[in-house]
Design a protein around this nucleic acid. Structure first.
Lengths: 178, 178
DNA sequence: TTTTACATGTAAGTCGTTACATGATTGC
DNA sequence: GCAATCATGTAACGACTTACATGTAAAA
């Protein structure tokens, strides 16, 4: 019953490249992957425990300094297997929950005074986003070598950039229609 | 604590134009608005009750045939007010949960044999989607008059079409890179 | 008459967010 | 010494999905 738990696969995917603590994993969502997936530590820690119960991951305990305990999680072969199976499985697409789009749907009148300010706010938002993504791409993928090393990541960032450009074009076009 | 409840505003928005039963509202998500928002009747019925408790909506009971009871819901002035306030409030954007993008992120190697079939599947999906959206647009907005009557809805559909076109272009470009 | 659509609910479970709670280490 | 960051958890709650449950009306 209920939902997908794709976060499980995200965590496996992140652990595939290196051993990490729950804290490290949580941080990944602030940069990198945060562009299209999110999770808080309060969701991550319990899930890591469940995944360990299912033998998809394991951990090594470490002590840093005098008494700070860390858990370095790693992926097991069973984890590798279900991750690979997931990669090969059919993909689903949940609809974006874009509140601006939702509001727009309900604005019947092209002359509504709400439209222009709403569009302006969105333009600002998506232009900022575009700038941010573009600089992120330049920073992360400055050489062909770096692209080759994280090919999928580069494609995904490229897509995010395309998406923002498309969004901006659409907003621009809207203005000509009102 | 926790989440947005934008569904409340969707229901208010739908009730703004006409009185409807819970069943009617649930059906709206199969067509129209379903393109970018979804809800099941099991979520809708309890929410309608709560909204009525909050005096945002009311209902008239009707009997169809011999004994079938219907509840025709309508929006109250309080409901109108909070709906209008929502339209004017800042909009948030939840990230798309696109499983294909997520998988792609984890594919480091441009030579991975997984890539081509994954892309092919996505191309098929988004081409079909595009065709479906295009015919929907033609059917719903065949005249300028119809566009003017549901201006926001037309813009939203246009956006969905743009999005699919952009997605397809990006997939096409990916193929040239591998 | 039989199937499809109309119509309304409840139950159980997972997902995800916000808040609560605690403590150690490192850099300034 | 103090602030920022590292580090790990739990609690409460709302959102959403899937399944269970029931019955009527209209159309084929």
């Amino acid at each position: 019953m209920a939902q997908k738990n794709r976060l499980k696969y995200v965590l496996l995917g992140l652990l595939k490249s290196k051993k990490q603590t729950g804290y490290d994993l949580a941080k990944s969502f602030d940069s990198d992957i945060g562009e299209f997936w999110n999770a808080n530590h309060s969701q991550i820690y319990p899930l890591l425990k469940r995944m360990e119960d299912d033998a998809l991951i394991g951990h090594e305990s470490m002590t840093v300094g005098q008494k700070l305990h860390k858990k370095q999680y790693f992926i097991t072969s069973a984890g590798q297997e279900i991750f690979n199976a997931w990669l090969k499985s059919p993909s689903e697409l949940d609809n974006t929950h874009d509140e601006f789009i939702l509001k727009l749907f309900f604005i019947d009148d092209a002359q509504s005074p709400l439209l222009k300010p709403m569009i302006a706010t969105q333009q600002k938002y998506h232009e900022d986003k575009l700038k941010q993504l573009t600089s992120q791409f330049k920073q992360k993928f400055s050489t062909q070598e770096k692209i080759d090393q994280s090919f999928g990541h580069s494609l995904v960032l490229r897509h995010a950039i395309d998406r923002e450009q498309g969004y901006s074009r659409w907003l621009e076009e809207m203005l000509t229609l009102i």
